[in-house]
Structure formats: C-alpha cells, structure tokens
C-alpha cells in the first residue's frame, strides 16, 4: 500500500469520528466522555483487548471476502448469507459427525467454506450467463439464507427448548489461545489467511490476472484472461471466506448454531474491505478498528448514557468519507472553482 493511501484513509477515519462527535453534540451528548468510554471499553484492560481481538476475527474473514471480490470487480453483499450457511454446516459437522480431534475442526471448517463457495457460485453464474448484477442476487440470497437457517434451527435441527442446534463435540472445538479469555485459534487463522492472500496478489500470475479483471475486464479478455472464469471464481473464493468466517465463529466461540450468532459480520465485511482499501493487510487493521468501536459500544451505553447505535452512525460516516475519497487538497480545489 502506498503511503498516500494510508494517510488519506486515516484522514477519512478521523473525519468520520469528528462528524460523529458533531452528531453527538447536536443531540445533546458529550462526545469526549463517549469516545473515552468507547476506547477504554476496547483497549483499557488486557482482557478487553483479548475480547476486541476475538470480535475482530470474523471481521477479518468477511473483510477479506469482500476485498477479494472488489479486487476482481464484483460486489459480494451476500457474505452474510454465506456466513450463516457455512456456520450452520460447521455446527452440524461438529455435532453429528464423529472425527478424530485436530481433523474434526479442519473438516468442519473446510465443509463450511465449501458451502459458502457453492453459495457464491450462484451469483457468479447469473452475472456471467444472464448479465444480472450480483448485488441484487446476493442481497436476495441473504434473505433466503437468513430465513432458511432460522427455519432449520426452529424445525428439523432444533435441539432442546430453544431454537438452536446440538452443541458441537469437544473434538471439534478450536482451542482458546489465551486462557481466561475467549480469544481462540480462529484469530491466528484469520491473520494467516490474510497474509496468504497478500502473497497471492503480490507474487502470482493468477493474482495478477485477478486484479487485471477488476481494473479493466475488456483489456484483460483481449490479453487472454478468461474473465468469466475470474468473475465466478472470485465470487466462489469470496463465498468460501465468508463461509469460513461463520465456521470459525461456531467452532471457536459459540460451539452451536443459533439464528442471531452473527450481528451482521457479512455486511461489516463491506466496511472492513473499504477502510482496508482492499489490501489484505489493510483489512486486518480495518477489522481491528471496527472491533474497537463495537467492543467499546457496550461501555458507551453503560457509562456515557449514549445509545450504542451511535457506533453505526460513526461507521456509516467513515464509509461516506472513504466513498467520496475525501481529502483536503481535493476539497479545497473544488471549493476554489473547478480548474478542469
């Protein structure tokens, strides 16, 4: 990532936070105490930091899922649905299929990712064959996946009195890496996967063709790249990563599937990818930023007396600044009369 993009992104984040502060002032709340408790709740104590990193884990996966789509020029809003389908698959494999330890979480994770990939194939096929924008297809698929998984845990796979699946076996659980916290091995996996894709995009022909498809599909096709294949495979990889996000959450944290286990991590992936500028390493930092806001929001509600929904507003404002690629020199050039 070049230096200018990093500085620009940091500026966008600061602008988003400042606009959020302004909004708090307008609604009669104290922005300083709000932000103090937000950062304290996420970073103030070692166990808060561990909790924050736990929350960043699915965000890194879904952020990568979206970033990889964006790189190839496709927008996979369906990550949330793929995450739910992958998570449910992992939960079922973990609960009903007896496999020796070590292999058990691996099989559950791989199958969860494969289901996500299969769900990603559908919008890819429809985009290539029918010319239907993947945004609409993946959004509709999200609703199908949300209601379908909820139907399954309230119907066929319900275990006990509450609408949730049978708990997974101990052999299927991802280990906790810091005793006394919830931080599990999934976080390490997330970091490894991010570096893996960083390497792919930097060093391989496939990674190059992938990015080329995103920059200019016509030129790439002329240059001999099978762009249709690239579009379908990018959505499948994106789906696999989203499926892995759900699987890791189930295997490392929740240990069973229930309808509300994801507070929208798939949608959050959009923000993570945008703030991380589609760079796998940038995604790690963006996921941590979002995790800080989220983890701190509980403390904000408790101590500052501000609705924790404020973090949604702040996130949206950051995204708006990133979307218009706000930078001071551009802004003042505009204000001083259009030179072009």
């Amino acid at each position: 990532m070049n230096k200018k993009i990093v500085i620009n992104t940091l500026l966008n984040i600061v602008m988003g936070l400042l606009a959020g502060a302004l909004f708090l002032l307008i609604t009669g709340k104290n922005p300083i105490t709000t932000f103090y408790w937000m950062f304290y709740g996420a970073l103030g104590q070692p166990r808060f930091v561990a909790e924050m990193l736990t929350r960043s884990t699915p965000l890194i996966f879904t952020g990568l899922a979206l970033a990889i789509g964006f790189k190839a020029g496709v927008f996979n809003i369906g990550a949330e649905g793929q995450l739910l389908l992958g998570g449910l698959t992992a939960a079922l494999v973990g609960a009903y299929w007896k496999i020796p330890p070590f292999f058990h979480p691996a099989v559950a994770l791989i199958l969860g990712a494969l289901v996500g990939a299969a769900a990603g194939w559908i919008p890819g096929w429809m985009k290539v064959k029918k010319g239907i924008n993947e945004v609409v297809v993946t959004i509709l698929m999200n609703y199908v996946a949300i209601y379908f998984t909820n139907f399954l845990v309230r119907g066929p796979f319900k275990y006990g009195y509450l609408p949730r699946t049978k708990p997974i076996m101990d052999s299927a659980k991802l280990p906790v890496i810091i005793p006394g916290t919830r931080l599990h091995f999934g976080f390490v996996l997330a970091i490894l996967v991010a570096f893996f894709f960083h390497y792919i995009f930097k060093k391989t022909v496939w990674g190059y063709e992938f990015k080329a498809t995103g920059y200019n599909p016509f030129a790439s096709r002329y240059g001999g790249v099978n762009t249709n294949f690239m579009i379908i495979s990018s959505l499948m990889i994106s789906g696999a990563l989203a499926g892995a996000a759900g699987s890791v959450e189930i295997l490392g944290l929740h240990h069973r599937f229930y309808g509300q286990f994801s507070p929208g991590y798939g949608f959050d992936g959009i923000m993570v990818a945008l703030i991380g500028r589609n760079n796998p390493i940038g995604v790690i930092f963006a996921a941590i930023l979002l995790a800080i806001l989220r983890t701190g929001s509980g403390m904000v509600q408790l101590k500052a007396g501000v609705s924790k929904e404020i973090v949604w507003i702040i996130q949206a404002l950051i995204i708006l600044f990133v979307a218009i690629n706000f930078s001071f020199d551009r802004f003042f050039k505009k204000a001083g009369g259009d030179a072009a």
């Binding site: 929904e309 702040i314 996130q315 990133v322 979307a323 218009i324």
Partner: peptide, 16 residues
Amino acid sequence: IIGVAINLLALGLTGY
C-alpha cells in the same frame, strides 16, 4: 458504496 453507506446511516440514525 455511497448507497451502502446511506443504508448504514439510516440503520444507525433510526436506531439511535
């Protein structure tokens, strides 16, 4: 992306 941001803003604004 602006559309996505507006949808997020709407969620946050109405919830808040």
